[in-house]
Design a protein around this nucleic acid. Structure first.
Lengths: 176, 176
DNA sequence: CTCCCCATGTAACACGTTACATGATTTG
DNA sequence: CAAATCATGTAACGTGTTACATGGGGAG
């Protein structure tokens, strides 16, 4: 369920090398994969085997050859099919709430410090997704007004997730 | 980062068998692990090796022996230490937002159907976490008022996550 | 001269899921 | 009689992370 479609998504905008894709993933918090070499290069090989991308090899005498991947018609169809697969609710791995659920054993000072630390972390995340949203719109301006609406909605949702988390933890801090 | 502490958490309330723990995980959406046999039985062996739990074997002639696990003092300390480890923001694997980001290729009818399906799924999740929160409080009433506050805060957060997701998708449906 | 960027990839490990395997007792 | 519940576990697989390995070019 899978990074492969995220790669195909990027390739709809432009042809890219594995290295380029790695940077795209590294720059993005909302695409939650680490984007490690292993995953990307393996996925590209698989996508190529399945005929969803083509590979152009640009030989360079003094450096390793650049392999530039381009999405195929079949690839575009596969991406479209994936977009229409039955949607699932987000999987939220909320470590901190599990920690809190067993936090009655710690003393008040430690608990406050924990909440403050958490608020700080969430705040950083919020700033990051906000900045990414701006950069994304600058770097890849939407081509249709519908795409603009969708992209705005996606960005808003990510911002709201962290903004609401931050409000919640601050409220809890007050309540205790 | 890890299921082992969730197991220790359950064991602070009562001694349990692997099978009991499996049910606890299966009943819980917020503890995001599947709670498969493999994970639980392996974790229990590891916890036992580390001295964080003790194992009492209750032999039964006609059935496999029940192995009842009890948390040790060392185990309680380990759990307490874990609760105080630096908190991290939630990891949100938001499949659907990735789908939406590339959804400009589908037609309006399909997109609406997709959003409706998604709203339905999220609604179901919301009902589930609400029901779980009630059951949890009935089955394991909090022992201190501080624990009650914490448990309420945790439950509220889970409900809010899905409630806000639902509002968001309904708003987007209107906007399109 | 060192560090970062470009550009490729492999190997080992950790984590998690599904399916397999066994067998008694209770419920419909 | 079939299915679910109790109770244990193993095997195979899939996914994802970290670390390893190589090597040229440019910036400070």
């Amino acid at each position: 369920m899978s990074i492969k479609y995220a790669i195909l998504g990027f390739l709809t905008r432009e042809s890219l090398t594995g290295y380029d894709l790695k940077k795209r993933f590294a720059d993005s918090d909302v695409l939650y994969w680490s984007g490690s070499n292993n995953q990307i290069y393996r996925s590209l090989v698989a996508l190529h085997d399945e005929g969803l991308v083509t590979r152009a090899i640009e030989h360079q005498d003094d450096a390793p050859p650049r392999k530039i991947y381009t999405i195929t018609g079949v690839g575009r169809d596969a991406l479209r099919d994936w977009v229409l697969t039955p949607p699932e609710p987000p999987e939220v791995r909320h470590h901190f709430l599990i920690q809190l659920a067993w936090a009655d054993q710690v003393d008040a000072g430690e608990l406050n410090a924990l909440l403050d630390q958490y608020a700080e972390e969430v705040h950083i995340k919020l700033l990051m997704v906000q900045e990414q949203a701006h950069r994304s719109i600058e770097d890849f301006p939407p081509r249709t007004s519908r795409e603009a609406t969708l992209r705005r909605a996606v960005a808003e949702r990510w911002e709201a997730i962290y903004a609401e988390e931050l409000e919640w933890v601050r409220r809890l801090r007050q309540d205790l």
